[in-house]
Design a protein around this nucleic acid. Structure first.
Lengths: 331, 331
DNA sequence: CTGAAAGCGCTTACAG
DNA sequence: CTGAAAGCGCTTACAG
């Protein structure tokens, strides 16, 4: 049917094994032979059968990407495409592919992962979220499948990459304090999300270090991560009279809040948020600061770590916990 | 190394070919044998090697999912996770996997697709977008790779699924007219996007059919699809004095527009938009209508069509162009 | 209803 | 620097 390595070999006047080595760019093959074989491959429009390569070499050259449930607000956030871009960038370098693992419920997702991991369709897993007591992550650990989490899971026996959310919460809050804010609110969201809770910790510590009182009334949670929610939050819930600064964990929420402030022409409230990807077009507005999370870098680092984890020469089991630097942009 | 079909066969006291047939649930194997073999497979925690299956059977059991460039505003829209949910739902039924094809530029994306298609890593492609003169789509056609587009491409020689955007543009506009609107604006966005242009056509036709004048001043384009843009559009650009209804193509933009209207307490302007997935929590507001696009169904239909296209018994080449019904919800 | 055998298209020691 | 041979772990006619 399809054209195979034998066909190429025959036409090029070499052995199939030689063609195979040319595909792998094996240094023991002479440039002359390589050129000849490559020319023939082009002529015949030859492409190696990936499944045959995978079976023979025991390398599928693909990673599984584990996404949250498809209903998750996660997908609305620029974080997702940005980190995906980073992952893709790094995988392309290594000529690896991404197999998606979604699923309508945990059971379905687990079965799928079980199948692709045990069935050797993937060499490793990238978790695009960190959640409490994740059964899928536990499974990966049980079967000893190399895995890296993007985020900070409640489980240290796994590789992960993240921003240092405690630190950036601290930095963001400190930035507002240095701009003169005294009554700073923390607009979190779901405190069950580790990054929300960690940034909150940093916020709290920053207040303390600068001798400002921590006031539970200034902590806002329990709303979804959508701009309309930010807008409505500002309109209906925030006690704007008693706030001169806000640390807003989610950038879409921050956008909604700013829209409201603009509408009401409220000019004396500073805001700072955390941005996966800073679009050039955003005019740097007055009293509007942000922390660039460099999420694309998080994605590529995750891939790098997975490749490291795949190296067989690691004497000991160790887990890489890496924090990607974020940069503060104040106005 | 890993446990294979031979190990299972030995332990179960049958031939490897029998085990293979049990895996495939081949009806020619007795229930008794099936049970015995299945028990052993469980005991030994056996999972078939997917690459070996794929190589031997010439079925990779995976489809490639072609995404737009990672920078695309597309990812911000609920359409993406919703359609992904539909795709996943349908693929899970058939026990198929999804291989992602992203890429930082067209060249990289094309090379990757070339590799996975020619290398038999995927049996078909699902395009999650329709764009003008898409080189990737053209490539799929050239190599005769089964493909289905989600959206309406400028190319009829391919399968596709979409809403009937002309029709729903018509229906949405008519709904506003029936609610008494006379000066209806069309908030589109990028007229290069086929769905924006098609809904606009329907809008224009509805006006005509109801003897309302088409006024170019009422057509708004050239802004991005983000809620903040909707808000700012309403604030700075829209001529709200002369508008009593708006057909807003993008639901996030619509959200921004409504936020602005609420703020200004403008109550006499109807809006209607198109929604990929209607969240239950949205209180049905006054003069706020929507068209449910049933995007999840679009996703599952795309998968079904791809499976149909894979059937070898199709005598003639034919292309399926399917429109998924949308439902109008007025207030 | 089941088994023995060939084959899918590669890679990789091994030998030279 | 290159080739012959075995093997990766399955599936699938073919035969009985």
């Amino acid at each position: 049917m399809a054209i195979t390595i034998r066909d190429v070999a025959k036409r090029a006047g070499v052995a199939p094994s030689t063609v195979s080595r040319v595909i792998a760019d094996n240094p023991s093959i002479s440039e002359k032979t390589k050129n000849k074989v490559r020319t023939v491959m082009k002529e015949m429009n030859y492409f190696p059968n990936i499944y045959a390569q995978g079976l023979a070499s025991a390398h599928s050259k693909t990673f599984g990407l584990v996404l949250p449930l498809a209903t998750d607000a996660f997908y609305q956030n620029p974080f997702f495409p940005t980190v995906l871009r980073g992952i893709n960038f790094e995988m392309a370098k290594h000529d690896y592919s991404i197999l998606l693992s979604v699923g309508l419920d945990d059971d379905q997702r687990r079965k799928h992962i079980e199948k692709i991991v045990n069935g050797k369709q993937v060499e490793g897993l990238i978790f695009l979220y960190a959640s409490k007591n994740d059964p899928l992550l536990r499974f990966a650990q049980e079967v000893n499948c190399p895995a890296v989490v993007i985020g900070s899971p409640d489980n240290t026996k796994v590789h992960y990459v993240d921003n240092d959310n405690d630190l950036i919460g601290y930095q963001a809050t400190t930035a507002l304090i240095q701009q003169g804010c005294q009554r700073i609110a923390y607009i979190g969201g779901d405190m069950d999300q580790f990054f929300i809770a960690d940034r909150h910790k940093g916020y709290e510590r920053a207040l303390k270090d600068h001798s400002l009182a921590y006031d539970p009334k200034h902590i806002y949670n329990d709303f979804a991560f959508l701009p309309s929610d930010g807008y409505n939050l500002a309109k209906d819930t925030l006690d704007l009279e008693n706030i001169d600064g806000m640390v807003i964990s989610d950038e879409l929420v921050a956008e909604g809040v700013r829209n409201y402030l603009d509408t009401q022409d409220i000019q004396d409230v500073h805001t700072i948020t955390f941005s996966a990807y800073h679009q050039g077009n955003t005019q740097s507005m007055n009293k509007t600061s942000y922390v660039n999370l460099n999420s694309q870098i998080i994605g590529s680092r995750a891939v790098d770590i997975l490749f490291e984890a795949l190296e067989p020469d690691q004497a000991s089991t160790r887990f890489i916990h890496e924090y990607v630097d974020a940069d503060l942009h104040t106005t």
